[in-house]
Every structure is written in C-alpha cells, then in structure tokens.
Design a protein around this nucleic acid. Structure first.
Lengths: 395, 395
DNA sequence: GACATTAGTTCGAGACTCGTACTTAATAGT
DNA sequence: ACTATTAAGTACGAGTCTCGAACTAATGTC
C-alpha cells in the first residue's frame, strides 16, 4: 500500500537509487547520460546517485567507450565485490548452495548429498559463507528453497510431506547459524517453495527471461508450479498457489500417492512415466530421466510411452493456460533431459485444446538452469530488496 | 518499474496524497491525526494534503466526533459531489451503466435491453452522462465491460464470439461520444473483460471485500473467471487469464459449443444445467435460474440435477484452487439465484478434492452485486487511477 | 476553574530534484 | 596543428516537499 522506500524525501532518494540499480541490471553497463534517459531522472540527480553508489561499493566505472563524436561517456556497471546473497536448497536427496553477487554473477555453486537433513543444509551454509562471503563482503539476505508448502510470510513451513520440517524452525536455525558467523547487519532470512524459487530464477536468468508472464513446472515424483507475473511471484491467499500436482484431471483410474484418483501427477509424475516406459527408478530423478532418454533413441515402445506422458503434460498445460495465460512455460525437473520426446506431444495436445481461436499457444521451453534453478532463484529473491528499494546500500 | 507519481518531489506529493485517499477509502471518515497514524506521514504533512484535497473538492469535513478526552478531531470524508467515474457493460441481451462517485456511492444505475448493439451502449452512455455527470462534475474515466477477450492494453478486443466487436473500435467510439458531450479533461476510456470487471467489483465492494486473493466465477452460457490479488487483477501474458470455461475437465462425452469435448462449461454452463434438470431456457439466464430454483423447492429430480451440476462446479473450483489458492471464491451469474442448491454439493466435492491436508478450503460465497457487478467493477476500475496516484485531482 | 489530554497549525531546518550554465574530453574538418 | 562541434558530466541556485518541535485550540476531569 505504501511506497517501498518510505514517505519522506530520503525515501524518494531510495526509490530513485533503486531505479538506477534496476536500470543497470536490465541494460548492463551504462553511462550517466544513458541512465538519466532510461530512468527519466535529471542528469544531475543521476550523477549524485551514482557517486553515492560508488562510495558504497555497489557500482564501479568501467573503461570508456570511445568512437563517437563528443565527449565519451564513462560507463558504470554493477559491481559484485562487496554485496552478495545466499541461496540454498534443501531437498530429499541433495542440498545446494549458490552465492550470487550484485552483478548477477554466480560466485559459488555447490551441491551435496543429504544424509542428516537440516544439519547438512546448515553445514553447507556455513561453508558457503566462509568461502564466498566471509572476506569482507556484505550478505544482504539468505533464502532456502524447500519442497514444501510455505506460508505467505516466507518463513513458516505449513506442510512438508518428504522432509521433517515444521513451522519457522528452519528459518530460525539458519538465522542463528549466520548470526554465529558474524554476518554484519543481520541479513534477512526467508524460506520459499522450491518451484517458486526455480520459477523466479528461470524468469530472471533462465529460459523465461524477458517474458512478462511465465509458468514454471518442475517434475519429479510430484509436480509443482511457480507463477511469475511482471517479475513477481503470484502467491495466492495463503501462499500455496501453484500446487498443481493434484489437479483432478486425466485418468480417473490412476491412483495417486495422496490417496485420491485422477491427480495430474498420477499421470505425468516420475513414477507414472516409468510405468509407461516399463523402466525402473535410479538414484535420482535426473539420472533416471537421462537413462529413459537414452533408451528412447533405440526403443520405439519407450518413445510411445513418453508420447502418452507428453499428451498428459500437454493437457495439464492447456488447463493452466486457460486459467493463467502465460507467455512462456518452462519445464524443469525430470522433463529437462527428456526434451522434445515429451515436449512435442505436449505441444500437439496443447494446439488441439486451446481455449479459443485467438489465444496463442504459450511457448514451451526446457529449463536451462538445471538442478541449481531453485538455489539460484532463492539467491535472486534475496537480492530483490536491493533492487526494489527496500534495502538501501548507500546508508 | 517506476514510481507511479513521478520521480520529483511533486511526484512524492502525489503518492502521499493518494495514500491519504486510500486510507480514507479503506477506513471511512477519519481525523487528520488518524490519517497521520495510518499513512505514517507527519501530522503537518497530512494537514497540508487534506487542505489541498478540500480545495479540490475531493474531501470534506464532517460533523465532529465528541465523547473522548482531549480536543475532538474533525473527521474528513471522501466527497463525491465533484468527481465521478462511468462504468458500462455491453452484453448480448442487455446493456448497463453505473456512475460511481469518489466516495464509492452509486449515483446512477440503469439497465436496458439491447436491440442495436453498440449504438444502444453509446446512447446509454450519453444519457448517463447527462443525468449524473453533466452538472459540473468531473468524469475521471469510463470503462466498458464486454463478454470478450480483451488484450492487456485494455482497449483492443481480440475475440468476441457473441458480439460484433473488433479491435479498438468500441473504445474509440465511446471516447468520441464523451468528447462530443464536452467532458472536460478527456477522461481515460478503457475496455475490459466482463468477468474481470465483476471480480474487481466483488473484491472491492461485494462478497469478497477484504480478501487479499479472490476468484470470481460468472456462469451464463459460458463460464468466465476473474482473478484478483491484492486488489489488482491478474491478467496473464496477453490479458486473457481467467478463460476457464474450456478447461479440459469433467465429462469427456459432453460436447461443448466450441466443438471440443469435456470442457468445463459443457458440464456446468447454463445449457448443461437445464439439461440436467430437464427444463427450458427463459428470456434471460437469471430469470431461467430463478425458475429452476423455484421448481427445486418441490421437485426432487430438479434438486438431484442441481446436485450433479454442483459437483461439477466443485471439481472445477478444486482445480482452480490448486493453481491459485484463493481465499474466497464468489459465484455470480446464474449461480446466484440457485444459491446453496449448487453451493452445498460444490463444497462437499471441494472438501474431498483438497490438494493437501493443510490447504484450507476457500470460502464459497454468492455474488451480492447481481447483474450490476460488471458495470460497477468497470466504474471502480476507472476510479482506480485516483487512488493509485496516477491521476492528481489537486492540480 | 485549573489541569490533563488530544487535535490541528505554524515555522524553520533539512533533503531532494530540476533546469541552466559551465567545464571537460573527445572527434571532424580545414 | 588548430578550430569547431558534439556530447558527458558537474556546480549552483531555485523550488518543492516532509519532518519535528513548539504552539494554539478545544474538550473532559477533578
């Protein structure tokens, strides 16, 4: 309801500073004159703001760009040396960490198998902090992606069928861990749904970059979705939007793990896919899918099974498109290795089921970020307040 | 991306003025002290802003409110005498107009049968203008709700299966009509989808008031939905979100008007409902539904038919809830007269199909605004820029 | 009738943006 | 080599805004 930066004139400055940062993120290195044109601010104002950001270590001048008439501008660029965000993912079989700097560069990326639950995550967080943050950098925030229903407060876990999580425990534990490490001004800690995080990452860095309205689907044993509109997640009333795995659609005879019949994931989840192609699960969903894709190259029955799965995927996307009208749908999880084997039949089904003659089929793309998507999105979300003006680096 | 009001200090004032107006709309008449507390602005600032608004005729002082210790505050309230917005609806068989003043009061509300298409709408617009605007008031905007796919620009009609509409013609015609009438500073004219307008109205004035995330369903021959999150419509990539009538769900044998099988509206649209209860259509969907409700009081077979329809409705809402997680679902159109005859079975189905143990069932409510919902929402949307700071009344 | 309490206004200080004029640094032309 | 031209960035003064503190105003309480 209120202006993000606050009501006074210093709030105005915060907003304008954030506008400059956003412009730099979107357009890359820019001169003060270009920033003035892009943000609509006066040249003088941009000059002051850039000087402040420079003093804070958030931007730096780059080599000049000659060749045109007139005095050459001196481009400034986002600088990541001093400001970073930490993204984590805790999943059933692995945990990941990504450290992202202000310029959007991945400073660190690591995954480990999970043996001890939350303890592994906290250990990874400590190591990542020591390796990529500790040396004088400022950590502006940390987020954990989990395969769970997370409430709209971005802290409390409401339901985590596959993990032993509950309430705000995870957020509190991570906050305590970071506090122990002496992270200067206490960074904001938040917990998010993994599909939402991955959707956020794909829409900012990945396959859906540039799309105003994107939908991300992750497929493992369950199917989850993340909805992004104008760069922000659509969360729903309690924060549970995107729980599409149990949409009542498709084969009414298929029994789902939830005890009901006809759920979407009972037709297109990993187990259903394996049943269709007559293969068995390997150690991880991704490796399993890779094996299936390999076999499909020589085995027509496997291809036929994937065709059936693809049609089911297309049907669900048709459903989601009727409701949400996304520009781009990104498929991640086990779908990524299968590629067009699933996407082609999905596209055909989608064409048959489009709601109206004018509604264009959303573009179906494969995830480009792979397994890091969720952790990357978590880090990106933690960086958000800097670019929205909520967090002021210059003060 | 940018601040709504603009970058300078006068833009700041616009934003703060808008914040005061929003506070007044939400809380009703308030003293300056209360406004200062609610908006977070300093008392002095609120004093200046209120004085400006008073000079512009947007607010007025009300009788004082004594009874407590200390100097009694003098409440100010939104005043509608000078500022109004026009909402219109053009449908297959009727056209409506609503004039809403700044205080949210309905100044005029009229419906007429349609015989000549767009011409009837423009005639109604002229009459409504003459009756409720002409006398010195300022018209800040006009919107038309149409049963059509409207692009994200809020002007161009992409597809109107039941009306002879195309492109930006309607918006241009209405703009020209208003210009002829000499509406001072040319008001903004926009065209919107009828379900979106009705959803907007229900979430601001009607059954979903106060809900952060609401879903509105309108049922006539087709089924349409509007999605509201935090007071704003979720529009999707091209503006076509909410076209839920053709979700591929339910009875695969049911043939839909669109030529495909299994569409939701083929199971729960007006015609499907009539087939279930074995009755015939009357002149309007609402009167038809009233007749069905009347018959249901005495006829068990009609009740059984409505039970089947209600289960279909519940199934679709379960689907939508998985995706969107709304707090409240409002049912309008022909569902309103049928009330619990449809809602009760829908609630039961919904309870069976909830996606997870923690996900709470969204509250199902009946539309309270009836046939005016769309026109009212259109008017409300036109009033929007005043409360967002896009339009400055004090300058 | 004095006092406590709360509402609203006045006033000066501080912060910010803006446009204009000015300085600086390069290229293009002679 | 020298001047004109072009565009980037800076300095400065004017204007607008918000804020806190002090002040005045209006009412209930003792």
């Amino acid at each position: 309801m209120d202006r993000p930066g606050g009501a006074g004139t210093e709030g105005l400055r915060r907003d304008n500073t954030a506008a400059v940062l956003r412009s730099l993120r979107r357009r890359g290195p820019s001169t003060r004159a270009e920033l003035a044109k892009d943000t609509g601010l006066a040249k003088a104002t941009v000059g002051v703001i850039v000087a402040d950001l420079q003093a804070a270590g958030a931007v730096a001048e780059e080599g000049s760009r000659p060749g045109v008439r007139g005095r050459p501008g001196r481009p400034v660029a986002l600088r990541g040396e001093d400001v970073v965000a930490l993204g984590l993912e805790l999943n059933v079989d692995y945990t990941s960490a990504v450290v992202l700097d202000l310029a959007g560069r991945v400073v660190l990326s690591e995954s480990r198998p999970v043996t001890g639950g939350t303890a592994d995550l906290l250990a990874l967080a400590r190591d990542a902090y020591a390796a990529a943050v500790g040396d004088g950098r400022r950590l502006v925030g940390a987020s954990v992606a989990v395969p769970a229903l997370v409430r709209g407060d971005n802290r409390t876990v409401a339901w985590a069928p596959n993990l032993h999580l509950d309430g705000a425990g995870l957020a509190d534990d991570l906050a305590a861990t970071l506090a122990d490490l002496g992270a200067g001004p206490t960074p904001v800690v938040r917990v998010s749904n993994d599909a939402n995080c991955a959707a956020y990452a794909e829409s900012h860095h990945g396959a859906a970059r540039g799309a105003a309205h994107a939908l991300y689907l992750t497929g493992t044993v369950g199917i989850g979705a993340g909805i992004v509109q104008d760069g922000e997640l659509v969360r729903g009333g309690a924060g549970f939007a995107g729980e599409v795995g149990h949409m009542p659609l498709g084969d009414a005879s298929a029994l789902c793990g939830c005890g009901r019949h006809g759920c979407w994931e009972a037709s297109v989840g990993l187990h259903a896919m394996l049943a269709e192609v007559g293969m068995h699960e390997l150690d991880t969903p991704l490796r399993t899918a890779e094996a299936v894709a390999e076999r499909a190259a020589t085995d027509a029955e496997v291809r036929a099974g994937l065709e059936r799965v693809g049609r089911g995927v297309g049907l669900g996307i048709a459903m989601l498109s009727s409701v949400l009208d996304p520009e781009v749908v990104v498929l991640g999880g086990y779908f990524a290795p299968l590629g067009d084997l699933v996407l082609d039949p999905a596209r055909r089904t989608l064409d048959e089921r489009l709601a109206s003659a004018v509604q264009v089929r959303p573009e179906l793309r494969l995830s480009t970020l792979g397994i890091r998507a969720a952790a990357l999105g978590a880090a990106e979300q933690s960086l958000g307040p800097v670019f929205s003006g909520e967090l002021d680096l210059t003060s």
